[in-house]
C-alpha cells in the first residue's frame, strides 16, 4: 500500500519535471507541505494524531458506558471483555474516561496555544516592527513573565482557584488562560527576532521604495514570511501545553475531578496499591500523554525540516 502511494508520488513528480517546473508554480508553503508529505516519520505522527483526535471525538459515542457512570459492584476491575481497560475505584470505565480525558487534554493544549499564539504573535510582531517604546514595554513584560518560576506560580494560581471555589467545568478555561500566559513570551521573543531581521531585508526596502502603505507592508509583505516559524513553534507549543496541563492536573491544580483529564487520571499512581496492583488505572493516560507528545514533536520536527532546512539547530 505504502509503496503504491510512493510510486504514485514518484511518477507524478517525474511527470511534473517533464512538463517543466513552471507548469506547476507552487508557493513556498505548498512546496514545504509536499516535502513534509515525503517525510514518513512525520506523516506517521500526523496519522497517529489524526486517529487519536478521531477516537477521542467519536469513541465515547460507541462506548456502552457513560463517562461518569459509577458502578459499586464493579470497582477496580482489571481489563476484561466488557471493560477493555478495566474500571476505577468508582467503577467507571477507564477507556471511556481516557477518551473523554483526551478531548479535554487536547482541547486545553490546542486552545492555550491558540491563545498564546494570538497574544505572543501580535505583541512580538508589533515589538519587532515598531521598535522604540513598544518594543521596550513588550520585552520588559515578556522578560518579567519569563523570570517568574512557572511551577510555584501555577501552584499558587491553582490554590487561589480552589479557594475561590471555581466550579470544575469552568476551571478548564482558566487553566487554558494560565497556560497561555506562561507560553506567550517565548513565542513573542522568537517572532520579534524574526521580524527584526526581516525588516532589514532588501525586499522590505523595495516595498518602501514602491511607496506602499505601512499597513500593507506589514501584513502583506512582512508577516507572511513569519508563518513557517509560527507553524513550527505553535506545533511544538501544543505538546508543551499538553505536558503542562498534565503536571497541573496531576498535582490537582489544573483540571479537577470529576472532569477527566490525562493528568488527573494519572493521579491514581500516587496511591501505592493502585501503582503496584492496578496499572490499568495510570498506564493508559501516561502512555497517551507520552505518545501524543512524541507524535506532536515528530510532526513539529518534520514541519521544521520541510519549511526551512536552515532552521535546524
Amino acid at each position: 500500500m505504502t509503496t503504491l502511494i510512493l510510486r504514485l508520488f514518484g511518477q507524478r513528480r517525474r511527470a511534473e519535471q517533464l512538463a517543466g517546473r513552471l507548469a506547476h508554480a507552487h508557493s513556498p508553503l505548498a512546496e514545504a507541505l509536499r516535502r513534509l508529505a515525503r517525510n514518513r516519520l512525520a506523516m506517521a505522527a500526523a496519522l497517529f494524531l489524526a486517529l487519536l483526535v478521531l477516537l477521542c471525538l467519536i469513541g465515547p459515542y460507541f462506548s456502552p458506558w457513560r463517562n461518569d457512570a459509577t458502578d459499586a459492584l464493579m470497582i477496580n476491575r482489571p481489563p476484561s471483555a466488557s471493560h477493555w481497560l478495566g474500571t476505577d475505584f468508582l467503577g467507571r470505565d477507564v477507556l471511556t474516561r481516557l477518551l473523554m480525558a483526551g478531548r479535554i487534554s487536547l482541547t486545553v493544549g490546542f486552545a492555550s496555544v491558540v491563545l498564546s499564539v494570538a497574544v505572543g504573535y501580535t505583541l512580538g510582531a508589533l515589538a519587532g516592527y515598531l521598535g522604540g517604546v513598544v518594543d521596550l514595554a513588550v520585552m520588559l513584560l515578556a522578560d518579567l513573565l519569563m523570570t517568574l518560576p512557572s511551577l510555584p506560580l501555577l501552584i499558587i494560581m491553582g490554590a487561589v482557584l480552589s479557594e475561590l471555589k471555581v466550579p470544575p467545568d469552568y476551571r478548564i478555561y482558566l487553566v487554558m488562560v494560565i497556560l497561555s500566559l506562561i507560553g506567550w513570551p517565548t513565542l513573542a521573543r522568537l517572532i520579534r527576532g524574526q521580524v527584526l531581521s526581516l525588516r532589514e531585508r532588501d525586499f522590505m526596502l523595495a516595498t518602501e521604495v514602491l511607496g506602499l502603505s505601512t499597513r500593507r507592508r506589514l501584513f502583506r509583505h512582512l508577516l507572511p514570511n513569519t508563518v513557517p516559524l509560527l507553524i513550527v513553534v505553535a506545533t511544538m507549543g501544543v505538546a508543551n501545553a499538553i505536558l503542562n496541563e498534565a503536571y497541573l492536573s496531576y498535582l490537582g491544580l489544573g483540571v479537577v475531578p470529576p472532569t477527566p483529564s490525562w493528568g488527573n487520571m494519572m493521579d491514581t499512581a500516587n496511591s501505592l496499591i493502585d501503582f503496584q496492583r492496578r496499572p490499568w488505572l495510570w498506564m493508559p493516560p501516561g502512555l497517551a500523554i507520552f505518545a501524543t507528545v512524541i507524535a506532536i514533536n515528530l510532526l513539529g520536527d518534520g514541519l521544521r525540516d520541510a519549511l526551512d532546512p536552515k532552521m535546524k539547530p
Binding site: 508553503l29 525586499f203 526596502l205 523595495a206 518602501e208 511607496g211 506602499l212 502583506r220 507572511p224
Partner: peptide, 30 residues
C-alpha cells in the same frame, strides 16, 4: 511620489523580491 513618479531598482534582484509572494502579486502592489 515613490514608486509612482520616482522608482528604483536594486543591485540584488534575488533579495529585493519577497520569497513568499508570486511575481504577479508583487507586480500588482504599486
Amino acid at each position: 511620489l515613490r514608486g509612482n513618479e520616482i522608482a528604483m531598482i536594486f543591485q540584488e534582484p534575488m533579495s529585493a523580491l519577497n520569497p513568499v509572494l508570486s511575481i504577479g502579486e508583487q507586480l500588482c502592489e504599486p
